[in-house]
Amino acid sequence: MNRIKSLKITILVIGILLILVIIRNLDRNVFKEKAKTAVDAVRNNSNVITVNQLKKLTAPYLIIDIGSESRPDSLQFQHAVKIAFSQLLDKANRKILNDAKGELILYADDVATASRAWVILNQLGYKNLRILTFENNPEELKYKFQPDTTARLEQDSF
């Protein structure tokens, strides 16, 4: 008993540290995934799904429609959940994301918004998360650069 008494401060410090670590770990606002997982997924293109692939998908999925309040109802996806981008992480919306079964498909009018949302959710640890795209390869350069063979650096600007 005496021994433990003399170790009071040591035990106290370790205890406080342990509590702080647990509090930090329970904070759902802290990103815990490795940043590398996001880079790898984007690199091998496992973060996108085309409309054709979606049609063939047999597994259950849920479409999350981000930031499209101005779009008329006739153009909405059926069975899609509408979530405004700025409220993506609200309590109610997190519950929708957590409860969803199967794949989560992100869609936004602007690929930029969908990409950013994808990174945030991926790093919060959501798996089976993909961006819906209408083009087969949105990252393709659609134009071909035509070199001007007569160009010289010396001819100065306009």
């Binding site: 984007v42 996108v48 990174v119 659609k142």
Partner: peptide, 26 residues
């Protein structure tokens, strides 16, 4: 990048890692 996707993913990753003053060419 060529489109919007890679650039915005990169933006979100770099910003998330805590580096400031990053932009995307829309």
């Amino acid at each position: 990048g060529n489109g919007d996707q890679t650039a915005n993913c990169a933006w979100a990753i770099v910003t998330g890692l805590g580096y400031k003053n990053s932009f995307v060419m829309k």
